[in-house]
Amino acid sequence: MAEIAKIIQEKVETYGRERKALIPILQGIVAEKNYVENQDMVSIAKALDLSAADVYGTASFYSFIENEEKGEFVIRVCKSITCEMKGKHKVLKALEDELRIKLGETTHNKKFSLVETNCLGLCDVGPAMLVNEEPYTHLTPEKIHDVISVYRNK
């Protein structure tokens, strides 16, 4: 909770105690723990003098602001047409096998979450994915183990 209060305070200092601080605060919390809990939204609502419902409605609009607990590393696999054409399905399968979870799930140790996302803007170098903010391109099932291993050991 102390961290959340600090994030709110910092963003309010930058953006003002106004509604325009809302998304930066939500992003700050996601950066801290990968998702925003209901309690955090209540804290934000108090700080910005908004209703909690308003905060929830806004947060739920954006796909990079998760309301459910996510792992330390969120893997977002691009599902747009060109990545699909270049073998996204196989990459996804390899990820599921490597992480032993299904799409949409989080590993038991809360290390990884696996989701699909719309176009990452990496169409010429697909299939592509993001691990948190880091892009990976020209993916093949064979590459998956090495990519994941790097994060396993982080």
Binding site: E18, K20, A21, L22, I23, F61, Y62, S63, F64, I65
Partner: peptide, 20 residues
């Protein structure tokens, strides 16, 4: 924060104002 529609200029502005 992840929404295609925010490429539309008024949606983009709404988003910057902290709204949907």
């Amino acid at each position: 924060a992840g929404a295609y529609i925010c490429g539309e200029e008024t949606a983009l502005i709404e988003s910057m104002e902290g709204k949907r």
